[in-house]
Design a protein around this nucleic acid. Sequence first.
DNA 1: GGAATTTAATGGTATATGCCACTATATTTG
DNA 2: CAAATATAGTGGCATATACCATTAAATTCC
Lengths: 157, 157
Amino acid sequence: MEKIENSIWMNCSSSSVRRASRQLGQLYGDAMGLTDLRGTQFTLLTQIRYLDEPTQKMLAQAMVMDLSALGHTLKPLIRDGLVELAPDEKDRRAKRVRLTPEGLARQTELVGQWQEAQRRFDAVLGAEKSAELRRTLAFVASEEFAKAYAAAGKKGD
Amino acid sequence: MEKIENSIWMNCSSSSVRRASRQLGQLYGDAMGLTDLRGTQFTLLTQIRYLDEPTQKMLAQAMVMDLSALGHTLKPLIRDGLVELAPDEKDRRAKRVRLTPEGLARQTELVGQWQEAQRRFDAVLGAEKSAELRRTLAFVASEEFAKAYAAAGKKGD
DNA sequence: GGAATTTAATGGTATATGCCACTATATTTG
DNA sequence: CAAATATAGTGGCATATACCATTAAATTCC
């Protein structure tokens, strides 16, 4: 009986990921230090920078995030002048997301702190396992995975 | 330049975990199906059941969650009569968390759906990798990890 | 070309989660 | 034992994230 419960809680991939997510949210968040930017916000700025003026839709996909959730998350950053939206030239439904000079500066500023957090993470888990973990998680987060997961249910559920 | 950004975003363990967390939140959430319970809530009920009347503090630690965050998360469940709080006998500061009969019933009801989700997950990732992933994530979520991470920073940061 | 359908974004509502300040108890200390 | 300190919870506020309904613009189909 107890064993059954135990097996559920230790074997739930979703809650395992969530717990780790909260832990790392803390650890990496602390690394951001003094600045008033959250870890999630740094990630978002970095992703925007990397994609170079993506539409909200594109950005949401890259973040594996709901479009409306992304919109909400962007608001504080827009309010604080780190990010701005501009209508797309071709498709007037779409809006492009880009960093303001301020936003770019802040992102750049924090890269060092991020690196330190990542260095520690790798030190604790080991570079090998660390890289392996990210590979696995990237797959889990992929559309390919979602498709395969859906296909795996075509029988019973 | 672009390569630098790329390396940040692909190598950030924190954002990797978060992305996977969002994906699995979706997938496992869908599995809960018709019921109005979220995946996170099922996890919480399961954890409460497993720990058998933990204090909020104990539950928060098990969930790797902030105490006040836990308190907030419990509110809808208490409101809906699935969970209740009772003051601890010995320590009047503490409150014990327990499932109501209704809560126990709902948790039990959903175990099958959870299993199906987990079955699919294992099918896609492979039982081996799946178990390995959970082991790694459990370590990352542990206090031991947090301590080691802190220790790894005693030099530079 | 105009109606039906699809797509991008927005706003509302609800849960998820964290930090801080504050209260009520307990525990430790002088 | 009383004062100082530590611990468990609570409530407020802010961000994170999802779903739904709605709007506006594009695309598809007679």
